[in-house]
Design a protein around this nucleic acid. Sequence first.
RNA 1: GGGGGAAUGUCCCGAGCGGCAAAGGGGGCGGACUGUAAAUCCGCUGGCUUAGCCUUCGCAGGUUCGAGUCCUGCUUCCCCCA
Length: 420
Amino acid sequence: MSTDFQPKSDFLAVLKERGYIHQCSDFAGVDDKAKSGDLIAYIGFDATASSLHIGSLLQIMMLRWLQKTGGKPIPLMGGGTTQVGDPSGRDESRKLLTLDQIDANKNGIRQVFTKFLTFGDGKTDAVMTDNAEWLTALNYIHFLRDVGRHFSVNRMLSMDSVKMRLDREQELSFIEFNYMCLQSYDFVELNKRYGITLQMGGSDQWGNIVMGIDLGRRMGTGQLYGLTSPLLTTASGAKMGKTASGAVWLNPDMLPVYDYWQYWRNTEDADVGRFLRLFTELPMDEIRRLENLGGAEINEAKKILANEATAMLHGRASADEAAETARKTFEEGVLSTALPTIEVTRSEFDAGIGVLTAFVKAGLVASTGEARRQIKGGGLRMNDAAVSDERATLSAADLTGEGVVKLSMGKKKHVLLKPV
RNA sequence: GGGGGAAUGUCCCGAGCGGCAAAGGGGGCGGACUGUAAAUCCGCUGGCUUAGCCUUCGCAGGUUCGAGUCCUGCUUCCCCCA
C-alpha cells in the first residue's frame, strides 16, 4: 500500500502516524475531502452484545480522531443488519438474535459513544444512526429491482468471507449471503441522508466496504471511499480483548473500572508503544519517550497507558481511583476498599459461608470444583494468606478492620466480600 | 433416487479393540522465576454436600453384567454415482 503517501490533512496524518490504517481505497481522495473539511464518515457496529468490547475501541477512536480533526463522525448501529448476521471473519453461522435482544443491546452500546464523541446538530457533531430505520422498511421486490440488480453474484463469490466458507465446505446461508448487500446499501443510504463519503471499519470489513463503494458508483452517489484498520493482536499473537472471564467490555456494569484499568496495566512490553498510539491521545514525542523506557521502567509507561485509556472511557476521576487502588494493592500491599466488591447479606454471612462457596460467589472461580483445584495449586488466598483447608468457613473473625474479607485468586485478581 | 463417510469433554482441534470422566494438542487458569511484562519450567483444565455420588461423546430406542465404542430408526453435514 502507499505507506509512503504523505497526507496533507490532519485526519489522515494522525491516523497514519498512530498506526490506524491498514488499507484505504484512495488515500489522495480521502485526504482531499478531509483537507477541505467536509469529510463525513461512518462505522457500523453490530448489536450482538449488550456492550461493545475492546475489539471495537480502535474503530471508536478513529471516529473520535475524525471529529477532533474537523470531520463529522456517524456511528451506525446495526439494528437491521444484526437481524441478518455478518459472516465476515466467522467460519460458522451466527445464532440469530431476537429483536428484543437486539433492542436491549443497542441501548447498552449507545452509552459508550457519548463518552468518546460529541453529539449534536453542529457541523462536526456526531449523529447516531441505526440501519433498522431503512432496512426493516425495505420491500423485497423493490430492493431487488433497485439495488439487487447492481450486485454480481460472480463478484460476491470471490469475496474472502464467502470464499472461505465455500473452500472449507461450510454452510453459508442465504440470509448471511445477503449481509454484504445490506451493508453496501447502508453506505449508499447514508450518503443520501448525511452526505457520507467514507466508510471505515476493521480489516475484515474490506470486502463489504469495497462492495459499497461499487454500489455507490452504480447508483450515482459520486465517489465513495473506504478505509480499514489493522486486525489487532497482542505481541504474543492472542486476539485482543479476550480474558478468561470473557471479553473486556466497555460498559462499567459489564466490567468494573478497576478491571478495565488492570487490563491495560498488564499490557505486554512489546505492545506498549502501539497501544499508547492507538488508545490514548498523548502527543507522539511523549509516546516515543515512554515506549523507549527500558526494563522495569516500562511499567511507568503501562500505568500511563492504563490511566489515559481508562480516563477516556470512564472519566479521569474513576481512572485515578483505579490507579490508586492498584497502587495500594500492589505497591503498598495495603487493602483498598475500592477493589471490586461483592455483597452478601449479614445473615447469610453469619450462618457461615464455606471458603469454596465464597470464591464462587466472588466470581473468582467458576465452580467449587475449580476452587478446590486452585487451593491444591496454591492459587487462592483470603486476606493475603493462602487458603489450605477447603472445608474452612468464613466467620466474623475473618473480617478486616474495614469489615470485609479480601479474596484473591492468583496475584492479580482481588475481590472483597462484604456482609451488609 | 442409489452408494460411502462424518458428528467426541458446551472454547477450539482431535484420538478413542465393549470396562471411560474418555489419549494428545492449542487456548485458558494457577504455581515457580520476574517488573502486576515476555520467554521458560511445573500443576490444573465435567458437576456436587468429594474415601463417595451425579451428568457427559448429534437425537431416540435396543443388545449386554457393562455402550463413545455393537444394532435399529431419526437429524444435520460431506463425498461419489444417477
